[in-house]
């Protein structure tokens, strides 16, 4: 599986190393602004809410709700041809931030199986020796 994975992989940057290291341990971690207490996504050292350097890492619950989704029927690049139809989605994490992901664990995706607002839980797909992608499945 790991050898055959040919889809685009994230290239961690200095300020996202922790995020991807934790993901590899199957944990979802977020940055939090200690100025206002809000979690934010995607990770960066200076917070986008307050433009503060007083920021820290926190472990997320892994619970989320479906904010929106699509069902990709046409592969955007050849690497995704084996995946269609797949479900690009945006989820509202319990801690507040929104993130892009895929909804998995529903078999062949159809609009009827997906309901905006439905509860979801994080699951991790190990795609390389260093990367696991956080995805979501129905809770």
């Amino acid at each position: 599986m790991t050898q055959q994975y040919n889809k685009p992989l994230p290239h961690p940057q200095g300020e996202s190393d922790v995020y991807w290291q934790k993901a590899k341990q199957h944990e979802l971690w977020l940055r939090r602004c200690d100025e206002c207490g809000k979690a934010y996504f995607y990770p960066r050292d200076i917070s986008p809410c307050c433009f503060s350097k007083r920021t820290s890492w926190m472990k997320a619950s892994g619970r989320a709700r479906l904010h929106t989704f699509a069902i990709a029927h046409r592969a955007p690049t050849p690497e995704f041809a084996a995946d269609v139809p797949y479900v690009p989605a945006i989820v509202d994490l319990e801690e507040g931030p929104r993130m892009a992901t895929n909804i998995v664990g529903i078999g062949e995706p159809t609009p009827e199986k997906l309901r905006i607002g439905m509860p979801l839980v994080v699951t991790f797909e190990d795609v390389s020796d260093t990367i696991a992608l956080p995805k979501f499945r129905p809770a």
Binding site: Q13, Y42, T68, F69
Partner: peptide, 28 residues
């Protein structure tokens, strides 16, 4: 540029090309 946030946090999920992005907004 792989350092762009989209390359790290959207593209690995097959968020590629305008139809997928705009259809997500339309669904909402």
């Amino acid at each position: 540029d792989p350092a762009e946030p989209g390359q790290q946090f959207e593209v690995p999920y097959g968020f590629l090309g305008a139809p997928i992005g705009y259809s997500l907004a339309a669904r909402r």
